[in-house]
């Protein structure tokens, strides 16, 4: 499957709370980060969790977040970061995304 995003792209994690087994942590939902690398394509954990085959495989990315975008009230150092693996259906281009949801 062709990856929609590439390293350096700014992406926003969907602000969504569907039921079921989700591997997108709450603390990054609705937040904007930068693609660090494409990890490859892997079976969809949201399907695998219910004994389905996980197809089609989904591109998986490592996304870098500046801590201040995750926790604006944080007293942490400006440069500190968090990198999280996120499947493509959870990502949208940051520039097209609506703000809010924090």
């Amino acid at each position: 499957m062709t990856a929609r995003f590439g390293p350096g792209d700014r992406v926003r994690v969907r602000w969504a709370h569907p039921p079921g087994h989700i591997r997108t942590p709450y603390y990054v939902r609705g937040k904007t980060g930068v693609i660090e690398r494409i990890c490859g394509s892997f079976r969809d954990p949201e399907e695998l969790a219910y004994a389905r085959d996980g197809q089609p495989e989904r591109p998986l990315y490592r996304v870098h977040f500046d801590r201040r975008t995750l926790w604006p009230d944080d007293q942490g150092r400006a440069k500190d970061g968090v990198e999280v693996e996120i499947f493509e259906p959870w990502l949208e281009p940051a520039d097209a995304a609506m703000e809010g949801g924090t």
Binding site: C39, L60, R77, K79, D80, V82, E83, E85, I86, F87
Partner: peptide, 30 residues
Amino acid sequence: VREPRAVLGEFGTEIPDDWEVRVHDSTADM
């Protein structure tokens, strides 16, 4: 993930202020 420098400090690890502390959350296949 929320207060990495405090946790590192409890392990006796002090990272200078002008360094980046980067937390890697293994949420999927890596």
